[in-house]
Design a protein around this nucleic acid. Structure first.
Length: 836
RNA sequence: GCGGGGGUGCUGGAGUGGCCAAACAGGCAGGACUUAAGAUCCUGUAGCUUAGUGCUUACGCAGGUUCGAAUCCUGUCCCUCGCACCA
């Protein structure tokens, strides 16, 4: 019965596409460009999973669609080949990461071809190729030159599992992004950073203009975390310490200060008498991992020092505390227990005075007094009290007034001049921190730096790039690059003296921060890319990938773009015009697909059992592409059946030179709908329309109608449509054919109405048959004379659907058989029925 | 705590002011075909009622706006995702 061998057909067309290189593109000013890109994968030995298949199918459909619409479509693929997972997997398998990666890549490419993806493979990128990562090094040198790359000692996140430090973005909930069970340790180390904070403002501002999902923009905004506040100078031990606060209005309520236990200069604040206590406290903190920090009770220890409030001259104790973040703001806070819950908790614990300075509107200070001290901090709006000349001000207003006042007071009471001109100033704070890119691991881009005994840190000259990863290293003994002494030893480029290479490599996210630019000119040996080519293709018109990269890759690549622009290499600010996050595909049990749950599906098995086209169709049918969905084998089977039916239809259809205006109307309507739906990623809805279309194709049609129908389906099911396209005597690829245009003049809503009339009649007849509950032999239908044609034309269809013969009379037909005078009931669009 | 996204039939999921008892798919039921099963095709699938009708109740819950609401507004509950001791 299975006349058609899908797998064979698919192989055939995949080969033809490959051999004819039809998807390779060049810049072409005559056509409008369209750049479709999916986030490139980490090649792992386990190969493609369903999520990949979904992701790439989404992109492929769009690429094919745009290509058929006449765009010059850039649709490349590559591999994010450097990175820890590859290194770890290689170690586990006892092989070299390079070999592991090569195999995985080969495997991926193979599998991607089986999905029928229309990539321009001539632009393939492999980030582990020194021809690629030398440009990572080049960018690094440029950043060094511009002061964007720098080395500094600071408290950094260390993942004991990865055995390397991580960027802030890679720490989630105090745990490693790759190891959700591994707690991050904080270590003071000297590391390389990229000064992404220089671009914080722009990264935030330009967000607004991007056609990205709301939530992603919100996440980035949140991550960048701009807040306005006031920096106030408090004097401690005759030195001025700036304190950042967003609540200058509560300055009269400050009753103590808390400095972060991780503060770089903490020990300067600790007096001799308190030293022991503080050290004990720090020791205790050490045993607590970052993970639990949030749930931790607020604790602290007195440092022995006092701070002087610049407005009241009051001396308040300075505590070291476990709840203050060291590298946000000033790493120290002015504590106002009456109006901040954390400060409140702390004050309660250590029995520190709680001084209220804001009362809610309409409440007397006496009333407020009880409320505040009993229930916790009052953080709402209100009026100032106990604040000298600011009493009675609305607190929002007071923020400005007090800041202004601080800005204009240049005298710091009783203190020698330290050069500070103001007691306070308005400042902007960002949560975004500089990007720590050093990794103590092997499988990454080597950092082009040497440490010279005489000259210190010396960059390796551009002409000496790439610094290739040495093959010969030992794994499992700390940083692998440190095990190759021969490689490490180098002459200083400056003084030719003895020097050692940097043995850390760069974070893998460096590679993915600009790869989309390299696709525009992937084989350039002389330059990172040709500016004109990049101008021609960029920015990415549609980027497709998972939402999990919102605060990592998607922010880093924007930063890189801005840096390269400032270097004069790019003429645009943002790399990604439009972003789409596909939903997660879960197992049929509704759970995330995972090995442990045993609900993983291999796309290749599915393809072997059904076909690529069936899989693609099913993947697009589950739900709207942006929402999560569950795998359902039945949907796959249904999709497969649908395609078989179409193939059957093409076996039997009679192609004639006829003009079926009714079907043309439907076809054009569907062309219109499908075109707009595909453009908006409503693939699931487009497929519904296509089902409708193919299910109602008449047995005799014109060549043109068949061709147009196939084209619509082609983007979803490229193989079978190529095959059928060929079958109906087309010599060229349907892949290269032109997307059908809508002929609005052919759309006639009347046909749809008529179709509904027929549906209604069938329904009514069925209904009555059921009510009568007996065998019906004959059906008589009475219709208005002007509607008679509609029903007569569909006589066969109606008869087939009700499973009985029927006779249609016009109500004015004198010869009609109508023993119960049912023709009296006839209304427009509703015939009379008599059953016997 | 802050910020996103949701709650629709037996199921997956459409629908964002009237054409909705709700596309399409699946499940289930009935029928056709068949010796039978499968495949295929047709019909039905909120409740009551009815020779094709009429009515009622439905889109988390409660209100509101409107001639009219699943769709807009307010409140509320629940689910989900991201960030979070950020001063």
């Amino acid at each position: 019965m299975d006349k058609i061998n899908f797998n064979k057909i698919e192989k055939k067309w995949q080969k033809k596409w490959k051999d004819s290189k039809i998807f390779e593109v060049k810049e072409d000013r005559k056509k409008e460009k369209f750049y479709v890109l999916e986030m490139f994968p980490y090649p792992s030995a386990s190969g493609l999973h369903m999520g990949h298949a979904l992701n790439y199918t989404l992109g492929d459909i769009l690429a094919r669609f745009k290509r058929m619409q006449g765009f010059n479509v850039l649709y490349p693929m590559g591999y994010d080949a450097l990175g820890l997972p590859a290194e770890n997997a290689a170690i586990k398998e006892g092989t070299h990461p390079e070999k592991y990666t090569k195999n995985s890549m080969k495997n991926f490419m193979n599998q991607q071809s089986l999905l029928g993806l229309s990539y321009d493979w001539s632009r393939l990128i492999n980030t582990s190729d020194s021809g690629y990562y030398q440009w990572d090094q080049w960018i690094f040198l440029k950043m060094l030159e511009k002061g964007i790359a720098y080395r500094k000692k600071s408290s950094v996140n260390w993942c004991p599992e990865c055995k390397t430090v991580l960027a802030n973005e890679q720490v989630q909930n105090g745990k490693c992004w790759r190891h959700p069970d591994t707690e991050i340790e904080v270590k003071p180390l000297e590391q390389w950073f990229l000064k992404i904070t220089d671009y914080a403002e722009e990264l935030l501002d330009k967000l607004e203009g991007l056609d990205w999902p709301q939530r992603t923009k919100a996440m980035q905004k949140n991550w960048i975390g701009k807040s306005y506040g006031t920096e106030i100078l408090f004097e401690i031990n005759e030195e001025k310490w700036p304190i950042f606060t967003t609540r200058p209005d509560t300055i009269y309520g400050v009753t103590f200060m808390v400095v972060s236990a991780q503060h770089q200069r903490l020990m300067e604040l600790v007096t001799k008498e308190q030293k022991k206590e503080v050290e004990k406290f720090l020791q205790k903190l050490k045993s607590v991992s970052a993970k639990n920090a949030v749930d931790l009770e607020k604790e602290g220890v007195f440092t022995g020092s006092y701070a002087i409030n610049p407005l009241t001259n009051e001396k308040v104790p300075v505590y070291a505390g476990n709840f203050v973040v060291a590298d946000y703001g000033s790493g120290m806070v002015m504590a106002v227990p009456a109006h901040d819950q954390r400060d409140f908790d702390f004050a309660k614990k250590y029995k520190i005075e709680i001084k209220k300075v804001i009362v809610p509107k309409g409440m007397t200070s006496a009333e407020a007094s009880g409320k505040i001290t009993n229930d916790g901090a009052y953080t709402g709006l209100g009026k100032l009290i106990n604040s000298e000349k600011f009493n009675g001000l609305e607190n929002e207003k007071a923020k400005e007034e007090i800041t202004k006042y601080l800005e204009h007071r240049s005298v710091y009471p009783k203190v020698r001049n330290t050069g500070a001109k103001k007691l306070g100033r308005k400042v902007v704070q960002f949560k975004l921190r500089d990007w720590l890119i050093s990794r103590q691991r092997y499988w990454g881009t080597p950092i082009p730096i040497v440490y010279c005994e005489k000259c210190g840190i010396v960059p390796i000259p551009e002409k000496d790039l790439p610094i290739k990863l040495p093959k010969n290293v030992e794994f499992g003994k700390g940083n692998p690059l440190e095990t190759n002494e021969k490689w490490i030893k180098i002459k200083c480029p400056k003084c030719d003296g003895d020097a050692r290479r940097e043995t850390d490599t760069m974070d893998t996210f460096v590679n993915s921060s600009w790869y989309f630019l390299r696709y525009c000119d992937p084989n350039n040996k002389k330059k990172i890319f040709d500016m004109q080519k990049v101008k021609d293709w960029m920015p990415i018109d549609q980027y497709i990938g998972g939402a999990e990269h919102a605060c990592m890759h998607l922010i880093y690549c924007r930063f890189y773009t801005k840096f390269l622009r400032d270097l004069g290499l790019l003429n645009f600010d943002e790399p990604i015009k439009k972003l789409f996050h596909q939903g997660m595909l879960h197992g049929d049990d509704g759970e995330k697909m995972s090995k442990s749950k045993g609900n993983i599906l291999n796309p290749l098995d599915t393809i072997a059992n059904y076909s690529t086209d069936s899989l693609r169709l099913a993947l697009m049918s589950f739900a709207s592409p942006d929402s999560d969905s569950n795998w359902d084998e039945k949907v796959l089977i249904g999709s497969h059946k649908f395609l078989k039916k179409i193939a059957d239809y093409f076996e039997n259809v009679k192609i004639k030179n006829i003009n079926n205006i009714k079907f043309e109307s439907k076809l054009n309507k569907i062309i219109k709908e499908v075109t707009s739906q595909i453009g908006n990623f409503k693939y699931n809805l487009a497929i519904i329309k296509l089902r409708d279309l193919f299910n109602s194709l008449p047995n005799e049609v014109s060549q043109k109608v068949l061709e147009k129908s196939l084209k619509l389906l082609h983007v979803f099911c490229p193989h079978i449509t190529e095959e059928l396209w060929e079958k109906i005597d087309n010599k060229n690829f349907i892949s290269l054919s032109k997307w059908p245009e809508v002929d609005e003049s052919k759309i006639d809503e009347r046909f749809e109405k008529q179709e509904q009339f027929v549906e209604k009649l069938v329904g009514d007849i069925q209904h009555v048959i059921k009510l009568l509950d007996k065998k019906i032999k004959n059906v008589f239908v009475y219709v208005l004379p002007n509607e008679k044609n509609i029903y007569v034309e569909n006589l066969d269809l109606i008869s087939k659907r009700i499973g009985t013969k029927l006779k249609i009379y016009a109500v004015n037909d004198k010869e009609k058989y109508d023993p119960e005078n049912k023709s009296k009931k006839v209304k427009p669009g509703r015939p009379g029925i008599y059953l016997k």
